[in-house]
Design a protein around this nucleic acid. Structure first.
Lengths: 245, 245
DNA sequence: CGCCAACTTGATGGCTGTCAAGTCAGGTGG
DNA sequence: CCACCTGACTTGACAGCCATCAAGTTGGCG
């Protein structure tokens, strides 16, 4: 359908959880139709966050968690001396803000790496609905648990992998999440800078750049600035399993 | 009271959550007496885990989470090639097993580093009680959130700190948790080996050993095998804040 | 066209890993 | 009781990976 024929309303009307195309990637997993319509009452506000803007900052009061509807975020923690540790990159369907529940303040920053839109889920309301909808409660617990497991994976990256292993794991992870969202598993645009990748992987940007170049020389990937094409998935995976030391 | 006069029943009778001395360190935070007695129905089984034994292993089916009543644990993830990443050390009052909720299988190993006892909290029951007891639900969410925040702290350790900074942060963390449990903040016995500390901190055991020695030379701590005495808390903290690069 | 941020690439250095030897503490068995 | 053994730890010498410093390139944007 030519662009001028697409009804404007499709993109401007509020879209409910029950109609959201993200579906199983987000919170509404295994809910009945009736329960889904309750979710629509829980999630009534959406918020646009332009590239470079903060969704929240460390120390902000915690009031809601956020489901990414469109866009791409990073979360990071800053040390007093200015050093940054990127704790994660989040894409559509993933949940932001879980760090704030424990202290009722956010403990990291969430920054949009491209123009994004998030669904605001007031946390107090979520807990209320969770008490009525067992499936929602259970799924929320799963989301939190998976975040913990994901963090353990990052610890392994940082604790025992070498530079090229870390970058290979990073690319394979992006590839897999891209595929889960219906995009290409082998070709995508990085939303983050080399510096941000490095901060996430515990490396300096030069090291990230060099690893990209080496992967390209070896025919594993094709790099053109932020555009990445994975040419040899098996080769990347092999980097992870084959340990010499 | 001489040992032979201590009523045997004190140590052998099951002790309920409502009588547990750990209190605020564990799950029962901000519960009414009535709610506490409900918790007593939730937590009815305790399990002894001797030093070196596993509480659970990766891939075990997930059925319960565990509150440490006494003892000390480590959690770790093993790579196929045998390398180990220790993801955390847990002491009395802390919760184990949250990693398993998301996939219904445990994703790491939990090993007792001394003879320990845990309270078994069947997860399905916990969710049921959570739906009735709002304070329990909320506190459980806080526990999970704090685990995520803790993991972010480890990422910072691994991602941007140098060896001595990591070890200083580690010692200060142990000190603070020791104090929270009513033990000395400045003197304690390490339950883990240098190798396990190194795995947690992303360092080799020799590096850990050298850092201990340097701290001792500088008068920051006194080390005698596993016995650690912190002589200069401020000095250790200074190591964290003063960054030269 | 010019500026700037992001990136690439090279040269050098340092922190930590690796390898090795030796010490120490605890436990076992003769 | 003591010799022995083993695992944990310490310390030294050396090496390698990655950080640092530096210079140059590219692409986007006013």
């Amino acid at each position: 359908m030519p662009a001028h024929l697409v009804p404007l309303a499709v993109s401007t009307l509020p879209e409910s959880c029950s109609q959201c195309s993200l579906g199983e990637l987000c919170l509404p997993v295994g809910l009945s139709n009736n329960e889904l319509s309750q979710l629509d009452q829980l999630v009534t506000v959406r918020r646009r966050v332009l590239r470079g803007q903060h969704l929240y900052r460390g120390d902000d009061p915690f009031e809601a968690i956020y489901a990414i509807k469109t866009g791409f975020f990073k979360t990071d923690v800053l040390l007093e001396d200015g050093r940054e540790q990127v704790t994660g990159f989040q894409m559509a369907g993933e949940i932001l803000g879980l760090d704030g529940i424990g202290t009722e303040k956010h403990t990291c920053n969430a920054v949009a790496l491209e123009d994004s839109e998030v669904c605001v889920i007031p946390f107090h309301d979520l807990e209320n609905y969770s008490r009525e909808i067992g499936a929602l409660q259970h799924h929320f617990h799963k989301v939190m648990s998976r975040e913990i497991v994901r963090d353990h994976g990052v610890m392994m990256l940082l604790g025992i992998m070498r530079a090229e292993e870390r970058l290979a794991a990073f690319l394979l992870n992006l590839s897999q999440r891209s595929m889960a969202r219906g995009y290409s598993a082998t070709e995508f645009n990085l939303r983050m800078t080399r510096n941000e990748i490095g901060s996430y992987l515990g490396l300096k940007l030069e090291t990230v750049s060099r690893a990209f170049s080496r992967f390209q020389d070896e025919g594993l990937i094709a790099v053109n600035q932020k555009h990445i094409q994975i040419l040899n998935v098996a080769g990347l995976k092999k980097l992870l399993s084959e340990r010499r030391t």
